[in-house]
Design a protein around this nucleic acid. Structure first.
Lengths: 260, 260
DNA sequence: GCACCAAATTGGTCAGACCGCAATAAACTT
DNA sequence: AAGTTTATTGCGGTCTGACCAATTTGGTGC
């Protein structure tokens, strides 16, 4: 028997992840967070859900497993799937699709302060590592992925230099947000195409401030750097006139006139 | 056709969870961590794994999804399943047991900036919500859990007032760290016993700065508040002379002489 | 009203099939 | 011989339909 696969509609636009189960999990999370199934209540049977979301039962099962691992639901064999009353924390932090502007703004605020603290606590060894990351960015500027990696290393090394695990964790979180957001991915791709050589000088300024143990200077250099990245993003997205990106632009541009 | 189900041996003793996929995921995680499949390498095909673990392919898929959500592996459609060079990324951000001092220090840096931004963007409605949260803290100061909740609400509302989802996400993350850390829980419990009335005044100062749309004042008030919390933590832990907490004290006290 | 058992419901798992993508090998072109 | 295109192979992705096991439910008889 021939099966017609992939005729799934779900044309409400692609949500996160190319995987079907992820889209279903997200939809499921939405209807749950909207209160359709209050905490403690039971979700419809897998078979019904499969019918409702127009996917097969295995897919529904996978989505439920995702929610289960996220701590949103509890599965009791033979009985049903129950919504945990564990707030919507998990849902919010997992599914929140944060735009690149928000992420960069947060990084300005946070990494600026982190750089200031790092300048006070960084060791010679760590300075060497940061310098190495900068070198990687310079020498391998053609190989995009490596450059991206070096960029992340640069910033994470500074975070680590603060000797504060919470700061490391937050920076990790921000990079994870950036990498997981589909919107971010698309916009960042455009920036990548436009080339980004001048970033080197800005990173260099940060490094020099750190080397001189200049907290204020490090903070300023970091904010300067990230502000310029935002500026570049604004230009890139404006040139493309991407619909939703444009909305973000208008929304953010006015806000950024207030910063610095 | 009649299928012989549940004749699976797996008699290596019951592992976690009654669910098959969880046991398989655990076994898989073990063989991966033992180096049988080094980071970057590819896992055998799902069909082979199903054969090896004596389960069906759907079960293997579910186990792989669990590992994927845990950040241990990456699934590339049409290609295979690859072991992530894990590093500190997912594991660290999930398991990292961050101490309360680090969290508070990060909050000083981040929430201070967030408050500054919030003062610029907060609306009248949001101000009312913040004021309500403060009231909850005052009136129900005896009921600890409610007070805790009101405290969290107070800070999260300010984060939301920035209109920046990334900031909301980060604050969420910091509170999650605080709540998930066993060390934090223990130390915070001590502080709770010592009473914490004066916090009200500090929160009030933050609210007033927000009401006056005073960015600098809001930042200062927030940092003042959190700095005092740290001070209280330091005193509480010193009085108790908790071993590891004391180490943290020594480590942090000298550092905080540099801040502000 | 209560204990008990059978049917209905639900999750758990399985086997086999088809689809589209990705990587590699083979054939072709230059 | 080197580079480019195309066919092949393998893999994950998903679907279907079935059966198993545990729970729930409703009836039944006491």
């Amino acid at each position: 028997m021939v099966i017609e696969a992939m005729n799934v509609s779900l044309d409400t636009g692609k949500l996160s992840g190319g995987r079907l189960y992820q889209r279903v999990a997200e939809q499921l999370a939405v209807v749950i967070s909207q209160g359709e199934y209050p905490p403690g209540s039971r979700l419809p049977a897998e078979r019904k859900l499969a019918e409702r979301f127009e996917v097969s039962r295995p897919t529904i099962r996978e989505a439920i497993i995702a929610l289960e691992l996220a701590g949103c639901v509890e599965v009791r064999g033979g009985s049903g799937v129950y919504i945990c009353d564990g707030e919507s924390d998990k849902l919010a932090s997992t599914n929140l699709d944060v735009g690149p502007f928000d992420i960069l703004e947060a990084r300005i605020l946070f990494e600026g302060e982190a750089a200031e603290l790092a300048a006070k606590n960084i060791t010679a060894d760590e300075l060497a590592e940061v310098r190495q990351a900068l070198n990687d960015m310079v020498t391998e500027n053609e190989g995009e992925p490596i450059c991206e990696q070096a960029d992340e290393n640069f910033h994470m090394l500074i975070a680590r230099a603060t000797k504060n695990d919470a700061i490391v964790s937050v920076c990790n979180h921000l990079w994870a947000l950036r990498n997981s957001s589909p919107v971010s991915a698309r916009i960042l791709e455009k920036v990548r195409q436009a080339g980004s050589k001048p970033r080197i000088e800005e990173h260099k300024a940060i490094l020099e401030a750190l080397e001189q143990r200049d907290p204020e200077g490090a903070r300023a250099a970091m904010r300067e750097h990230l502000t310029r990245v935002i500026q570049q993003l604004l230009d890139a997205t404006e040139a493309e006139a991407v619909e939703e990106a444009r909305r973000a632009v208008m929304h953010n541009r006015e806000r950024f006139n207030l910063i610095d």
